[in-house]
Structure formats: C-alpha cells, structure tokens
Simulated assay, not measured.
Amino acid sequence: MNMEQTFRNQYPFMAALLQFDETSRRFKLVCGGSLISATKILTAAHCVTQNNTILDKLVVKLGMHFLSETEDDAEHNAAHNFNEIGIVTLESPVEFTDKISTVCLPKECHLEMEFYDSTRAVGWGNSKEGEENYGALRHMTGTMITKEFCIEFTRSRKIELANHMICAFPFYGGLCQNFDGGPMVLQRPVSTYGECPWIQLGIIISANGCHEKPEPDVYTRLTSFWSWIDNKVKPL
C-alpha cells in the first residue's frame, strides 16, 4: 500500500473515533470521520452500530496528526445511522481553530459525479492486515470509476453495489484496515471557493488494499443523502 503522511493540519476536519478496549486497557481506533458542523461527525453506519445497537462510550479526537495526541478529545451523546452513513453528535460544540474546522458537503453541481480525478482518502489505518494502526494521519490519491467497472473488479468481494455507493481506484496500492468511516475528499481552489478548500464526496465503507492486487475502494455517495444529513444537522 502506498500512502503518504499528511502535513500537520492539512485536513482540519478529520476526526478519529476511539473506543476503550478492556483487554489492552487503552483506547483503540474504531473508525475515521469528518467534522461537518460544530456538533456533528460524519462517518460510516457500521462504525457506530453493532448488532443493530448504537455503540456507546466512543471518544472523538479532533485536531490530531498523531493518534497518541491527547488534546481536543470530545465525548458524544448520540449517534444516528441510515444505510451506510452515520452521524455522531458531540455533547458540546467544538471551538473552531486553525487545527479544527468543517469540511464542505457536495452541492447539486456534484450530483452527476463519475470521473473526478485526484480524490483523496484520509485516515489513520494500518498498512498490512493485522498490523497496528499507523501513528500519523495519511492520505492516498485515487480516481473515481464507473459502477460497471467497479463491479467487475470487486466480484471476489461479493459486494452489492447500491445506487448510493461510488468507487475510486487508487493510483498505487489501496487502503487496508481501519480506514472505514473516513472521508473521500476533493480539493478546490481557495481563490474560487473562499475558505472551503475541501469538499467531501464519499465515506469509506469497504477497502481491500491489504493485498498486492489493487482493487477499487467503495464509498457511500453523499449526494444520495442530502435530505437525511440536512435533517440531522439542522433539525426542525
């Protein structure tokens, strides 16, 4: 797998979801996520549920580069999920800084997205199956592919690609374990779009880069969940 360590604060919207492990007596990475408002973390549904039950005692870390950093921890008090998308609600709003800010969500002009080049997948996952998670935040570049092309490459994984899913083929290697819930983002010119250089197009839900043969990674398509996300972020 070929991933590069990010610069510090390159992705200020990144969140790490951790849960206390009774065996090791320490917090372990469950999934990644992205900050979409002062109180909401976007992630994959299976990151916040187990046997159809919402997980409790999750700790959210924000503004981190290394997993070992301890500042900016936040407790959550609720989680909602639908299909393969989940939202974690923090107990109190976070304070935005140069290390912590929100990612932008897609707009109508991104609805027919099939072939965006140079998308980024971001997370703290490991390089090889069964290994410890990597200590620093890393990213990998890929390109979006058609559903038909993705189905052909993922037959062995027996994944049923729904209409609300999209795929991206990594330029080199692929994501391995514990990247689920993290964002797939696209960089935009700051001069054109003000202070929002990153737009999130998807959520990592299935990665298979632990093996030598490169395969597409599968993501939840955010444009399929506009109404659901808006309802959770701005409830009536």
Rank of each mutant, 00 (worst) to 15 (best):
E4K: 15
Q5C: 13
T6A: 03
Q10V: 10
P12E: 13
L17V: 12
L18Y: 01
L18S: 08
Q19T: 08
Q19M: 09
D21A: 09
E22W: 13
E22C: 09
T23C: 10
S24Q: 15
F27V: 02
K28I: 14
K28R: 15
G32V: 07
S34F: 02
L35G: 03
I36L: 05
A38Y: 14
A38G: 13
L42F: 02
A44Q: 07
C47K: 09
V48T: 11
Q50R: 11
N51W: 04
N52D: 11
K57L: 11
K57A: 11
V59A: 07
K61N: 11
M64T: 07
H65G: 04
L67W: 04
L67F: 06
L67V: 02
E69D: 04
E69Y: 04
T70M: 04
T70V: 01
A74Y: 14
N77V: 10
A78L: 06
A79M: 10
N83Y: 10
E84G: 06
E84K: 08
I85K: 07
I85Q: 02
G86H: 06
I87R: 00
S92H: 15
P93R: 12
F96A: 13
K99G: 03
K99R: 12
I100D: 06
V103Y: 05
C104D: 12
L105V: 03
K107F: 10
H110C: 03
L111A: 07
M113T: 14
F115M: 12
F115D: 15
Y116T: 13
Y116L: 10
D117Q: 14
D117F: 12
S118R: 14
T119E: 05
G123P: 02
G125Q: 02
N126H: 08
N126D: 03
K128N: 06
E129G: 05
N133L: 00
G135T: 13
L137D: 01
H139P: 00
T143W: 05
T143G: 05
I145M: 08
T146I: 07
K147M: 14
K147G: 08
E148L: 12
C150F: 08
I151L: 13
F153L: 12
F153K: 15
T154G: 08
I159M: 03
I159H: 05
E160G: 08
E160A: 12
L161K: 07
L161C: 05
N163S: 06
N163T: 02
H164K: 01
M165C: 02
I166H: 02
C167F: 11
P170H: 11
P170N: 09
F171R: 13
G174V: 04
G174Y: 07
D180Y: 13
D180R: 12
G181R: 09
M184Q: 05
V185L: 00
L186M: 03
Q187T: 07
P189M: 01
V190Q: 14
G194F: 15
W198R: 01
I199M: 09
Q200G: 00
I203W: 09
I203H: 07
A207Y: 03
G209L: 05
C210M: 06
E212F: 12
P214H: 02
P214S: 05
P216N: 11
P216S: 06
D217L: 04
V218H: 01
R221S: 01
R221A: 00
L222S: 00
S224L: 01
W226E: 05
I229A: 01
L236G: 06
